[in-house]
Amino acid sequence: MAPPPPPPPAAAASPTPMLLALTGLSTFSDRLVEFFNHWNSFIRYATAISDDLPPLPAADQPPNLADVAEPESTTPHSPVAVDEPESSTAPNPVAVAVAEPKPAPVPQPEEPRPNRGGDPSAEHMGRICERMGSGELLRFVISRMGDLSWLLRAVPPALRRAPNPAELVLRAIGRYYIRPGGRHTEAACELLLLSYVRAGCPLRPGQEAGDDHLRAEAREAALSWRSRLVRSKGRVAAAAANDARGLLLLMAAFGVPVEFPSQEIFELLHAAGGLACAEVLKCSKHFLDKLRDVVAHMLNRGIYHQTVATIIAFELQDAFPLSAIATCVIERVGRTKDQDSQEQHHLPGSDLKWGAEC
């Protein structure tokens, strides 16, 4: 029998797949070791970052969330560092970048500052006053006339922020007292005057009496307003309530002209609506000083009823005690009765009457 044929040559290569598998396993093990080495390197980088985080905020500033979050943005670069061979002498680029002192943030002029009172509209109006935008201020007030309660709260503090509040208000109202505009324009001008008085009539810093040219302009305005009332109504006492109130507020804001008659100031007070604006006018010191002269003039004329109401409304009892006024009234009434009795006894035919009655 013939011997069996020799095995084919391919049979000798049968151990090759096993060797390839062993070689691949060895390569995978090497890669796994390399991965763990890179992972340990990454852990060391992260530890270095966390150790360097506390010194980031400046000593005189509170921590900034943006600054704290900034080192996290460097983590995407960590794969680049992982690919490089580990070196104990090379400085850690991530740690060096974090440890560098950051420059102090430059304060922005307007945006970072919080709104005063948390109201952006009030802050906008305050900025208008700061740049003395009289026309812009009037237009802004007209646009918000539907919310009077907000304006009464927001306008006085905004006016105090102006470099020269008196000039700002006087320029804003213009000459509406001679040429009245629309209903909203008149109401806005009156509200600006009222708010200026409620703010305490603030002046430019460093001045106690105000600018001479502003006082002269306000005096001319008050007298021109009075002239218009006399021409249109015949007398000041017949003025409409809004006209009387506006003129009073103008004089309370900038002073009462010496040429203005005391009697007409008294009439304006009652034409303005029964002393309804007394609470605002009491904020003006120079108006109260003038009002004392007006009250004294009216008492000397024997006008007690309305004068006493004015004294009570403006809290002038210290200067004009009501007990003294009551005593004066009683004495005057007694003298009047005595005069009437004497005149009646001396009437023609009075003796005959008294004789017939007896």
Rank of each mutant, 00 (worst) to 15 (best):
P4S: 04
A10Y: 08
T16D: 10
G24I: 10
S26N: 12
I43E: 11
I43W: 12
Y45G: 10
L56K: 02
P57Q: 00
A58K: 12
T74G: 06
E84Q: 13
A90H: 12
P91L: 14
P93V: 03
A95I: 02
V96W: 11
V96Y: 06
A97R: 07
A99D: 01
E100T: 13
A104G: 05
V106K: 09
E110Y: 15
R113S: 11
N115G: 00
R116G: 02
G118H: 08
L137W: 00
R139I: 03
V141T: 01
R153P: 00
A154C: 14
A154H: 06
N164Q: 04
L170G: 00
Y176I: 03
E186C: 09
E186Y: 01
A188E: 04
L192W: 00
V197H: 09
V197Q: 03
V197M: 14
L203F: 07
G206E: 03
Q207G: 09
E220G: 14
A221G: 09
R231P: 03
A238Y: 00
V258H: 15
P261D: 07
Q263W: 02
H270N: 07
K282W: 10
D289T: 08
D293C: 08
D293H: 06
V295F: 04
L299Q: 04
N300E: 15
G302C: 01
V308R: 04
V308Y: 10
A313G: 15
A326G: 02
E331Q: 12
Q342R: 13
